[in-house]
Amino acid sequence: MTGRGTRTPAEGGASPARTAAAGGAAGTAPLGAVGVLAFLAVWELVPRLGLVPGRYLPPATEVLAALAARAAEAAFWVALWDTVLAWALGLAIAFAAACLLGFAIGSLPAVRAFTTSTVEFLRPVPSVALIPLAVLLYGTDIGSTLLLVVYAAFWQIYLQVLYGVADVDPVAEQTARSYRLSRWSRIRYVTWPSALPYVLTGLRLGAAVALILAITAQLVIGSPGLGREIAVAQSSGAIASVYALVIATGGLGVAVNAGVRLLERRLLHWHSSVRTEAAA
């Protein structure tokens, strides 16, 4: 009796209370907008009042103007495209490899036991350690970026796939077997849907890490993309541009997060526990 049944919501006043809370949540958007405005106002005032010299921290309006000026140049969009391309390509390769290996190794416990020590050893190796190797192998080519992105994103997705395959409900698996479903049907109808929430969690974590590493490679190695633009702007002393490009990468990050969350919601609308999974 320690099961999930104990988590039923209290009867009685609970539902009207929740309605009230939901009404409150709808009312938070204006407060958030005020927060954004307040942040911009502080950013504007701090350099204007001379609390931090303007040559280190240009006021918000100057940075936004620099961003607008950048956005009018084709070079900015080329750099953005390069970054998105490296991110998407690297993530796709990592995702495909991690799913294939994860499902294959995860469903064979013997093989899994033999690979655990290697995975535990390689997973924490920081992908930036591979920067020198990437430079030697690919120079400032997109290949450098891809090497780092694939390495970093692969482990995130691979581990989640392994968890997912291991988490298949034994009752569901036994039900499928008792109805004599074939091995392929069991994977199609039992393993894959049960593992899907984990796969998507892996995709979400992997997407964020992939963006970090894509930008890092461009920043440090100088392969084409927004990261390189930031390094160039910094070394040429175009401070407002540096800030503007940082804002642009933040925007890209927000877009990536929102996109993956949308995908999760689309694919997992049937799965009630999606939102309760810990942020691990």
Binding site: T28, V34, L57, V220, A231, G253, V254, N257
Partner: peptide, 27 residues
Amino acid sequence: LRAFTEPVLEFWRAVPPPVLVPLLILL
């Protein structure tokens, strides 16, 4: 406070941390 700060915090979380390196070298 959460409603007030959430959009700004979500934005800074989404900024890939390495781009802060050149910024902070300036500062």
